Amino acid sequence: MTKNISLCLLLMASSQAVAESSYFFDEKDGQFDLGYHLAENAYGFLPVPVLITEPAVGAGGGVVGLFLHETDEEKELRRQKALESIDGGAQLMPAAMTLVGAGGTANGTWFALAGHRHSWLKDSIRYTAVGGAANGNLDIYTRLGGLLPPEHPLQFDTSTEALFAMQKVQFRVTDTPLLLGIKQLWAESSISSSNPLVDWILQNTLGDKTTTSGLGFIAEYDTRDNIFFPKKGYTVSAEYMVYDEAIGSDNNYQTLGASGEVYIPLTKHWTFAFAGSYDQLYAGDSHLSPTTKPYVDLRGVSAYRYQGDQVATVQSQLMYHIDHRWTVSAFYGYGVTTSDAIEESDDSVNAYGVGFRYQLARRYGIHMGVDLATSGEENAIYFKLGAGF
């Protein structure tokens, strides 16, 4: 969700660094790089300007701080690895990372959040926590049970205010890439609409506030060579969540989600990547917030534009590494929705585009760049941290 829109903004983030001519240039290849800043800065963080271009919420911006907590010994080991090899250091997993950020868009959407991930015993135990507040102004679409064509659905606006918190703990199975764990999610939200009829329906079905409380099981299998910008390996994850009055939720339902990514090095300069996802909602209650249903999440497609009780996506991406700093790519995605209710209709969408990445912190393998995407109905630009899926 983050950006390489202006290297100058990143340069201005540390007044101390301006005085040192080599502070922002890699000691091995001489290119612009924030690895030294990230490792040696007194605050140990990467300030990232955020430019939001999600079609569902409009243009906006903000700032995010990425903190990588490492001991002096870990920093020195990473520095030595980076000197030994042009790709060295990127494969070392930071034991602790913290993310703090805030932003907003032109349509009144805003967010503020903080998250932390920590691991112990050589990543045998991993804990992740995220919390924050947000206001999301989103359009919801419906075809009225197939009465309207896909290109002209009925559209109405919603405004959702929410406080949220999530935590999960995972345990590695012996020395394998498999992690098993438990996830807990809590949120308190309220939803409204500027349309009087829609707002009346929302208030009479959902009430003033809704508490969502869920507990579930998660599994993850990860062999990627770099969590920020993998070039080989794969990851598969699945989770099953239960939302029930017994654990404080106002609504009863369950969700199942599964996703995977595969990165295949074809040659020194070419990498092929493939990703897929599946999400399903098992609705125990008939009156749920319209944002509860899963949606097609693809570059070039507005969030919540295509929703259903079951949603599946597939994506492919071909990357050409010009050198160890610059990568260009082309990608394609397809999403489909199905619904259990007879009056609801199935939908599908294609999306494709091109993009580029620049390796901004070689010690950590952190890449940032831009994707241009279209789904035929709309065009979008994304400023991305990492591979893009």
Rank of each mutant, 00 (worst) to 15 (best):
D347Y: 03
E54M: 03
Q203D: 11
S213F: 07
F274C: 02
W186K: 10
G365P: 03
K28F: 07
D29E: 04
P153C: 14
T271D: 07
K209Q: 12
W186F: 11
G276T: 10
T105H: 01
N195W: 00
Y243A: 09
N379L: 10
A114D: 00
L77T: 11
E245D: 12
D157R: 09
D285A: 06
L113C: 05
V311M: 04
G62Q: 01
G61T: 04
L38T: 13
K231M: 06
G132L: 04
L92T: 10
A373H: 07
V314P: 00
A219I: 06
S345V: 02
L7G: 08
V301F: 08
D222C: 01
Q359F: 00
D72I: 01
L298T: 05
L68W: 01
T105Q: 01
F356L: 12
V169I: 15
H118Q: 15
A112M: 13
Q167R: 08
A238N: 02
N226D: 04
Y282P: 00
S22N: 11
Y36F: 11
L121Y: 12
R357P: 03
M1L: 09
E27T: 09
F171D: 07
I366M: 04
L185W: 13
D285V: 02
Q155C: 08
F274E: 00
D199T: 00
V63E: 14
W186Y: 15
Y43W: 14
L11A: 14
S21H: 12
A82G: 09
L7W: 01
Q16A: 14
Y36E: 12
E188W: 03
M93T: 14
Y282F: 15
E70T: 11
L77D: 10
I342Y: 15
Q315M: 12
P294T: 04
K232N: 09
T158E: 04
R79L: 06
I182Q: 11
E84V: 02
D346M: 03
N41E: 11
G365L: 05
L154A: 15
E20N: 15
T235I: 13
T98P: 00
K168R: 14
T210S: 10
K168Y: 15
L154H: 15
S316R: 00
A129K: 02
A387K: 07
D371G: 04
M93H: 10
F67N: 09
Y234V: 01
E161Y: 04
G257P: 01
G257K: 07
Y127N: 13
G131C: 08
Q203H: 11
A238Q: 06
W110P: 07
G207C: 08
S348F: 03
S193H: 04
S159T: 11
A330D: 02
H321G: 10
G260P: 02
Y141G: 05
I5R: 03
Q203E: 13
S375R: 05
L298M: 10
A219N: 01
T291C: 00
Y282V: 04
M241H: 07
G207V: 08
A106E: 07
T160R: 10
D139Q: 09
